[in-house]
Design a protein around this nucleic acid. Structure first.
Lengths: 340, 340
DNA sequence: CGGTCATGTCGAAAATGTTTCGATGAGCTG
DNA sequence: CAGCTCATCGAAACATTTTCGACATGACCG
């Protein structure tokens, strides 16, 4: 059953406008040898007939792009993801279009716009997803891959993460092995999946060692420097202040460092700090930060390759992949200080 | 005078391959009803005849992209540039494709590839330019905008920078006004224009104050953390060690901090440090870094808008624009210590 | 005023590329 | 061998763009 009245062609429009096919073509291509009157007449008739370009011509092979969308301003974490995606994109011959999510709702129209703009897939980084969004993307046939999603909607979505739980365990065990018992955790949004996994890793390691999680020792935030400073200050001012703090990301760790510095605490002699991510920041602090490395570049690369596989219509082995984290010991951790 | 032997058409290729025009078309469009043998034969003949798709058909409006190319791995500086370009791109409705320059020569073919991939312009960040590259880009009609170029070829190229000289003066004057006289400069590549401007600003301020630039007090590098650590160590180990160091960028400043820390020097009490750029790093060090702010986001935005104007065929007012730098005083600078 | 020339519009026809559909032949089956 | 399937290919129909000549118009000139 062909779709009702055939799709409009130039000939259709030309006939109804009383001009030649050539003229209609010229209007479409913005040629100059068409009088303004004729042009606007043809344009309105094009609209009326819902004219759309015919075959989506063979697209130049290099034209493929993938959108890499962030939910917030770029930071050291984003930089590594971008780097990884760009490197993998260069190999695959697709361009990485970076964007920062604006307030705009992610509607079907938005998804279609991305497709029309030549995007082959969308990679959303640390995003919050409403349940309708995967549906909108599916309608537009735009594959979606998530990196470190804040939440996972019911529908099955492909996502890339790292072994946050294991990382939380490793960080905490490292501190425990140095003799620390009063260890606080300062993390990100309480609802974020990756934050929960790190927190549970911390709790699991503490519990295994029989170390109590003291009241006020677990704090949420937004993974930002400022959160680290504020929460760090709050924790350090407790009567039973911790001797070590496990921060949910490097930026928070640096904020904690600043809070410690403001209180005259020496790091690592009087306070040990472990971060998470191993961004470029970690190598640049004083002292250099002990942290749990997330393979962010690899995650960006894997996300891209997964997105391309989805775009090519292939199945992916698993709808969620976790890359391994690894504890990197630098200078911000030391054995627990002797009681004065 | 038409360009010699007419451009190859499907008919040309079909004739030389001994197949029909239809078959060649199918190969081009990746249709399945072509035998592998025929396909590869046609493909090689397409190559041989330099077949290119004819008219760059009327292009879907949303497809526009601009390439933002970096010469090195992404860092905090890149992040700000990207952020600025992406924000401006979102406003203008063009996508920003980030890429990292590979070893590949920037030939005419490369430039044409970018055009074929839908790029409207190229923004090259802190790149080194050979004289042939602007020519290759011009032949492909791809507008080029430079941000902080390392060198400027003879041909007139549009570029965006900041007032590096004024910034160098401001940083140095700030240190001088705190009573410092033994001030060292640790910068980037000796040939880089932005580095030279900062260095000359430093020299000018020193000279104006009658402060001598002591031997060994000016050092080059690659604007990296490691350079700061090495050159910082070298300068601090001089018999006439400086009381203040002006670093050519924040990352170098952090390296210098690390070198100072390794020598037990307290910052800012025993050593003042000024950085350059005001990337996110500067707010995150201990103590927070006094630095010369470059409006990197604005530079990214201006570069994008300039690139789009060039792509639209408009003239730009000036082929070089410099945005204002601004000294941001934080915690890494203090009055010169009294002689012990 | 009539002739000439430049200019703006337009369409017929040619050029180019894509799609449909039937022809052909190889290989397999019964 | 008849009959069937399947892959491959091209002729022809289509869709669109481009070229080029036709025509009208108006300016300019002698």
């Amino acid at each position: 059953m062909p779709s009702g009245p055939r799709r409009a062609t130039l000939a259709t429009v030309a006939a109804s406008a009383g001009v030649s096919v050539a003229t209609v073509s010229k209007v479409l291509n913005g040629r100059s040898d068409v009088s303004p009157a004729t042009r606007s007449l043809v344009q309105s008739l094009l609209q009326e007939h819902d004219y759309v370009a015919p075959s989506p011509r063979r697209e130049p092979p290099g034209l493929a792009t993938v959108e890499l969308q962030f939910d917030t301003d770029l930071n050291a974490y984003s930089t590594e993801i971008i780097q990884g995606a760009v490197a993998a994109g260069a190999e695959a011959g697709v361009g990485i279009v970076v964007s920062i999510r604006s307030g705009a709702a992610r509607t079907t129209a938005w998804a279609r716009g991305l497709v029309a703009a030549g995007r082959r897939a969308l990679i959303a980084v640390t995003g919050e997803l409403t349940s309708g969004q995967p549906a909108a993307l599916a309608r537009a046939r735009l594959p979606l891959v998530l990196i470190d999603p804040l939440n996972l909607p019911r529908t099955r979505v492909t996502s890339i993460g790292s072994t946050n739980f294991a990382g939380g365990v490793a960080a905490t065990q490292h501190l425990l092995s140095l003799g620390h018992r009063r260890i606080a955790y300062i993390g990100g949004p309480a609802t974020a999946a990756c934050n929960q996994a790190r927190l549970h890793g911390y709790r699991a390691a503490m519990e295994a060692e029989g170390a109590p999680v003291l009241p006020g020792f677990v704090r949420s935030g937004h993974f930002r420097f400022h959160d680290g400073m504020v929460s760090g200050a709050a924790v350090l001012d407790l009567p039973h202040a911790p001797t070590a703090i496990f921060a949910g990301c490097d930026e928070v760790a640096v904020g904690v460092m600043e809070a410690a510095r403001a209180r005259g605490l020496r790091i690592p002699e009087e306070l040990s700090i472990v971060g998470f991510d191993d961004t470029q920041i970690a190598q640049v602090t004083s002292p250099p930060l002990t942290t749990v490395r997330q393979p962010l570049r690899e995650m960006g690369g894997v996300a891209l390759r997964t997105a391309l596989r989805l775009a090519a219509g292939e199945r992916v082995d698993s709808h969620h992949v976790e890359l391994a984290t690894e504890l990197v010991v630098r200078g911000s951790t030391a054995p627990v200080p002797r009681r004065a």
